[in-house]
Nucleic acid binder design. Structure first.
Length: 776
DNA sequence: TTCTTTCCTTTAG
DNA sequence: CCCGCTAAAGGAAAGAA
């Protein structure tokens, strides 16, 4: 299947096109006309310019490959050849032809559903999607060159009468569920690839089926209330747009007078039956491929589309023959670029692939050439299994050009909100947050940051995302970022054991504690805002569990949520006593801990860091030394002990924003990139640092700095000194502040005169867009 | 060197 | 009205262990 971009490419224009304006050719456009129209709609657009640039990059990649090829010696080649042959025979020995794999694909699914529900559409060219992107088109529209993955506005030029129906996923999901019910009868472990596509292993079904009486293989044509067989009615006017229904073979009458059809026991009959049942149930048709493995089944399902099926027999020779002249592009996983690269080596069909294996082994990575070898031998997975746990989750949005800071940040927050919601649905927490940006020139870049512990809430995500965004903004300052897309992704999910036991009980424990002790209540108000979060139910449990998990504690110790030290007990009563002491200690500004209590095995670097931070004597290369030490700390996920009242975060390469989201004793984040230890607090308070795991540079220091040292309390959220010493009042303020933290952030940023920003110390080195490198 | 993180590219539906 | 969204995998480059 050709993409519209390929149609754009004038160098491909000479190629024959399967597109036929069959019958009289009244409607539909010929290929040249299509190309011309697409070209005219595209030429000169920023999108098109970017496509050209990407194409250049691919061309350079090919050039480099050819250069490499030129340096290959005869000797290397024969060595590779031997390796390939060895591997080939090993693979051949393991060839498994015993399974019967089926790939089923609904025909023009979304379009078919829409047509079924609105028969008026039937004889009109239509597509499902929007002006900016189409998902599917019906066969009418395809005659005009209108296809999936083509923007609607171009489709409209190709076919002005095109009806564009917006997608309605809820509807497709319902239909999909019906189809899957049928799949399940043939393979309860079937693997859905999308709403309209699935792999099945029907080997077991066939085994059983052989012993089935006819009755079990007999299926009735559904009748509507007028008594007409729906399948037949459908062929007349409804959405089943294709002939050769699986039900087209002779029908029998059953006892009740309804029409029935009996299916055989072989694989083809079973699949035909399955397609028949799908059509009866949904009025939609499907195509299928039957083969000994998934890779081949996928190719086969395309062979007689629409509304058809193809079986590749389970014998080696049949497979070899089938593969021979198959264009490499037909194989799932070989896309436009790979096709082009192989093409440059004279490889277009799978048999070429086999012939050039030695060369490929030298030019491509191991995984790549192994994959090629499998393809050339017609090998593929013989058992289908559902995907394991998800690896990432993301949300992104495209919009009209956006340059305003406030807009960008509030959008970023929105995305974080959406994502947090999705995370919540699956009860996931992630360590890595990635920001994706696309500017008006379609240049894409991503910026990621890995935290030492998993996060999940909007605030936590936004704390990281907004900072990544800010870094990018600062990078191009004083020009604005002219965005057309923004996205946020999370990955590196916490492992299952990471996200439950122990911690929950601690939180619950504290919670209880709070309700029956006024004193504790007051004590807690002395903690930072983030600590207070811990008292809210599940949503914020992450914060506490995150940091309580911090030390590589064995199973025989608990981590105090106040001082973040390990308590060497599993007895809750003992632990309780510790926390009690700890809380009152923090409140009273006393150090309740003896030095031995402070000793805590796992943090190798604690002392070094402490010295580094406290001493104030950072004679040489404090930055380098500091961040080095710190990164070790981060790996150990430890808390730092702070002995001075103001610690420069940039010195140790920390990102202050991230501290917002973490409980941190009596330490607040100072505007000027410093940690501020409240005058009342224990000088040995511990801070749980949410800092980047890697060596990458951190934040740009903020412009102005204020020093708060008065006896009054400083709000850890808004950084403002509160004119009170009443902890209850202060607590209330922090609560309010916390709720509005994000807004405060936005307001603050928006009001900053951007020209006063100092140039960031090359947070991410190199040009903003790597692509630019290639065009020069 | 080896392992990890970041960022980019390719693919698919 | 002027080219989407989500997810996964692999590879290059750069640091850290």
């Amino acid at each position: 299947m050709m993409t519209w971009m390929e149609l754009c490419d004038p160098s491909l224009t000479h190629r024959k096109m399967a597109l036929n304006d069959n019958k009289a050719g009244m409607e539909g456009l010929n290929r040249d006309k299509i190309n011309k129209i697409i070209m005219e709609s595209s030429k000169g657009s920023r999108f098109y310019e970017n496509e050209l640039k990407k194409e250049q990059q691919v061309n350079q990649r090919i050039e480099r490959m050819m250069l490499q090829k030129a340096h290959i010696t005869e000797q290397q080649l024969s060595k590779a050849q031997a390796q390939v042959e060895k591997m080939t025979s090993d693979l051949e020995r393991g060839r498994d032809l015993s399974r019967v794999i089926v790939h089923v694909d609904m025909d023009a699914f979304y379009a078919a559903v829409e047509t079924r529900d609105c028969p008026d559409l039937m004889d009109k060219p239509m597509a499902v999607g929007s002006m900016s992107m189409l998902s599917t088109s019906n066969y009418h529209a395809r005659k005009f060159g209108v296809r999936a993955a083509m923007p609607g506005f171009i489709a409209k030029k190709l076919c002005p009468n095109l009806v564009i129906v917006p997608t309605n996923f809820d509807k497709y999901r319902v239909v999909s569920a019906e189809v899957r019910e049928v799949f399940a009868d043939y393979d309860p472990h079937f693997l859905p690839m999308s709403l309209d596509e699935a792999y099945l292993d029907i080997s077991d079904h066939l085994e059983q089926r052989r012993g089935w009486p006819e009755a079990l293989r007999t299926h009735r044509l559904h009748t509507n209330n007028t008594g007409t067989a729906r399948g037949i009615e459908v062929e007349g006017l409804s959405p089943v747009l294709f002939e050769n229904s699986p039900s087209s073979s002779p029908c029998l009458q059953d006892a009740a007078g309804g029409e029935v059809e009996v299916f055989g026991t072989c694989a083809e009959e079973a699949v035909r039956e399955m397609r028949f049942r799908i059509e009866q149930k949904t009025s939609l048709t499907a195509s299928a491929g039957i083969a000994p493995n998934m890779m081949l089944a996928k190719v086969c399902s395309d062979k007689n589309k629409p509304n058809g099926q193809y079986r590749l027999p389970s014998n080696r020779q049949a497979v070899i023959d089938f593969i021979q002249d198959l264009p490499v592009r037909k194989i799932s996983g070989i896309g436009k670029v790979t096709e082009k690269m192989l093409g440059a080596l004279g490889i277009t069909s799978c048999s070429h692939l086999g012939q050039e294996m030695a060369l490929l082994a030298l030019l491509f990575s191991e995984t790549s050439w192994h994959h090629f070898l499998h393809i050339s031998m017609g090998l593929g997975s013989t058992h289908i299994e559902r995907d394991g746990e998800r690896k990432s989750m993301s949300t992104e949005r495209t919009f009209g050009e956006m340059g305003a800071l406030e807009e960008q940040f509030s959008l970023c927050k929105e995305l974080c909100q959406d994502l947090a919601l999705d995370l919540q649905k699956e009860a996931l927490k992630a360590k890595t947050v990635t920001l994706k940006l696309k500017n008006v020139n379609f240049e894409v870049k991503t910026r990621a940051w890995t935290l030492p512990c998993a996060v999940a809430t909007t605030e936590e995500l936004f704390a990281v995302a907004k900072d990544l965004l800010k870094t990018e903004i600062d990078n191009v300052s004083p020009q604005p970022l002219r965005l057309r897309l923004m996205g946020v992704r999370v990955s590196s999910f916490a492992s299952a054991d990471d996200k439950k036991p122990l911690q929950k009980s601690i939180v619950g424990f504290l919670h209880k504690k709070q309700t029956d002790s006024t004193e504790t209540d007051i004590s807690m108000s002395a903690l930072t805002a983030s600590d207070k979060i811990t008292h809210e139910p599940s949503a914020h449990a992450s914060t506490s569990s995150c940091c309580s998990t911090v030390p590589e504690s064995g199973t025989d110790s608990l981590t105090c949520p106040v001082c973040f030290r390990e308590v060497n007990t599993t007895e809750l009563t003992v632990f309780n006593r510790h926390i009690d002491q700890c809380l009152s200690g923090v409140t009273m500004g006393q150090n309740n801990h003896t030095d031995t209590e402070l000793e805590r095995g796992p943090c190798v670097c604690e002392e070094e860091v402490e010295k580094e931070i406290t001493g104030g004597k950072r004679e040489e290369g404090p930055k380098e030394k500091g961040s080095k030490l710190l990164s070790r700390c981060v790996l150990d996920s430890v808390g730092l002990r702070l002995d001075s009242t103001n610690i420069s975060l940039s010195t140790v390469g920390l990102n202050p924003v991230c501290l917002n989201t973490c409980p941190n004793g009596d330490v607040s984040i100072h505007r000027a990139n410093t940690l501020k230890v409240s005058s009342q607090s224990d000088p040995h308070v511990r801070v749980c640092l949410l800092s980047p795991g890697g060596p990458r540079p951190m934040t740009t220091p903020k412009p102005e700095s204020r020093d708060h040292r008065g006896p009054a309390l400083t709000c850890p959220v808004c950084q403002e000194t509160q004119d009170t010493n009443d902890l209850t009042l202060f607590n209330r303020h922090v609560d309010l502040c916390l709720n509005q933290e994000v807004l405060h952030e936005l307001g603050g940023l928006a009001s900053v005169d951007r020209t006063t920003h100092t140039a960031p110390p090359a947070a991410h080195k190199g040009p903003c867009f790597r692509n630019v490198l290639f065009t020069e």
